[in-house]
Write a protein that binds this DNA or RNA. Structure first.
Length: 207
DNA sequence: CCCTGATTCGC
DNA sequence: GCGAATCAGG
């Protein structure tokens, strides 16, 4: 396989979207992630900044008369750790960043905006774990994780992304967790915690 | 072990 | 220019 304009374009787009080299390689096919990374560097795309627009070279202030350096090559600027992959301003955070009173009210599994009932009433919703059969710790953990969820669409899921559905599939307010899944499991750590529970634990917790 | 990007260097 | 091998890290 060679780097046709089309493949390069795909590479650029996915890289700008924050996709990993391996994900891009998988998408393109016929190349390894090494090839992708190599190409990225040759294209000068290495510093990936959300938004796609390349930031001007931020050079290190460097002391006025920098001492002569024996280095053959100029020191590369420190890489910025890629921060937010994609920002989706949608849906204001439920809890204010300020101190939220301990745990949110129990039973309030789906806070936020009113669900747009697109689907006729009576449609079964996917099984949502009810609060009273999940350990408080796990529940808190899930709530926390869901804020950090990558919000993947169905098509974006891979063997190693958490496939826990969040929200109501009958509305626009729906996505998959997408965080790294535990090896051999379909869910991330937090969601495994609520998905797989010993029968005894469930029985004990149920009223 | 799974993964990430960065770099080198023979081709 | 290309990308496998390797490095360095999470």
């Amino acid at each position: 396989m060679s780097w046709t304009d089309e493949r390069v374009e795909t590479l650029k787009r996915m890289w700008a979207e924050g996709q990993s080299a391996s994900q891009i390689a998988k998408e393109l096919g016929g190349v390894t992630r090494n090839a992708v990374i190599g190409k990225v560097h040759r294209l000068g795309l290495s510093n990936r900044v959300a938004g796609g627009k390349d930031e001007d070279e931020v050079e290190i202030p460097a002391a006025p008369a920098a001492a002569a350096r024996p280095d053959p090559r100029p020191e590369p600027a420190p890489r910025a750790e890629a921060p937010a992959p994609r920002a989706a301003p949608e849906r204001p955070a439920a809890a204010a960043p300020s101190a939220a009173p301990a745990a949110s009210a129990p039973g309030n599994v789906t806070p936020l905006p009113l669900r747009k009932a697109i689907v006729p009433a009576g449609q079964p919703l996917p099984p949502q774990p009810s609060a009273n059969e999940i350990s408080p710790e796990a529940l808190a953990s899930v709530r926390e994780v869901e804020k950090r969820a990558r919000k993947l669409t169905l098509m974006e899921l891979t063997e190693r992304t958490c496939k826990w559905p969040i929200g109501d599939p009958a509305t626009d307010d729906f996505w998959f967790c997408g965080l790294p899944s535990l090896p051999g499991k379909p869910y991330c750590e937090a969601h495994v915690g609520v998905a797989f529970q010993p029968m005894s634990a469930r029985r004990d917790r149920r009223r």
